Amino acid sequence: MNAITKITPDIQTQIIEAFNFRHATKVFDAERKIDAAAFQTILEAARLSPTSFGHEPFKVLVIQTPEKRELFREYSWGANGMMSGSTGQLGTASHFGIILASTAQTMTAGSDYLQDHYRNVKNLPDEVIEIFNGAYGKFQATDHDITTDRQISDWAGKQAYIVLANMMTAGALMGIDSCPIEGFDMARTTETLRDHFGVDTASWKPAVMFAFGYRAKDPEFPKTRRTMAQTVSWF
């Protein structure tokens, strides 16, 4: 594949069609499953997503075991079907999961985790690592003032949302439906991840849930958005 893809009107049309196709699917066709290769493409879109400083402060958990999914049902009102009179995305999605966001334990400037990331993931030489440490330290301490655990976790959560957006767009381009889900109890989800999934919740916190599959029916209402003039200002 060429490093640079030729942009054509056909590609532009496909992109807009994919965004018009995508909607927050509340109930999926439980009998239809996403092909393994197609979902691998969605995961690859996640892995290749951009993140601030290239720190990749996220991890994707794919939860396919029905019993494991049910652990979240009581307190995940956005996924348990309460608003749709069904078993919700937990019960009907082909693929369901959670994106985790890093905490201050790993994402504080100068952490051992980041030094290892610079050396063994980004393959940076020591002199460049020193530059990264200084720039990221300034970014945290003064530019954006994100120094507490909550602030750093929220910043990492922003990166997780970039990842999920790319996953959903990749899915839509393949005709696969999706839903981002924030309707869950954060504290109880964190406890469940620690007690039943072995997640080190000192290092990782849940950012957002996701569901992928094929819609059970088309949306009842057309997609609505503000006009371009209301959305974008040019100067």
Rank of each mutant, 00 (worst) to 15 (best):
124 L>N: 02
87 T>M: 07
95 H>K: 04
94 S>K: 05
139 F>L: 13
167 M>T: 09
155 W>R: 08
180 P>L: 04
158 K>N: 14
168 M>S: 09
146 I>G: 12
125 P>R: 05
195 D>W: 02
106 T>H: 13
120 N>R: 13
117 H>C: 07
114 L>P: 05
131 I>T: 11
189 T>P: 11
197 F>Y: 01
159 Q>N: 10
157 G>P: 06
144 H>K: 10
93 A>N: 07
116 D>I: 15
166 N>M: 04
164 L>I: 10
183 G>Y: 06
181 I>K: 07
154 D>A: 12
96 F>T: 06
87 T>K: 10
106 T>W: 09
199 V>R: 01
118 Y>T: 14
171 G>E: 01
162 I>K: 01
86 S>A: 08
132 F>L: 09
179 C>W: 04
184 F>G: 10
168 M>G: 05
85 G>T: 10
99 I>K: 02
123 N>Y: 15
158 K>L: 14
140 Q>Y: 03
86 S>V: 09
174 M>V: 08
151 Q>H: 07
108 T>M: 10
98 I>M: 04
117 H>V: 05
168 M>H: 00
127 E>M: 09
113 Y>G: 09
135 A>S: 12
96 F>H: 05
113 Y>S: 12
167 M>G: 04
120 N>S: 01
197 F>N: 02
154 D>L: 09
134 G>I: 02
90 L>C: 03
157 G>W: 02
170 A>R: 06
147 T>E: 13
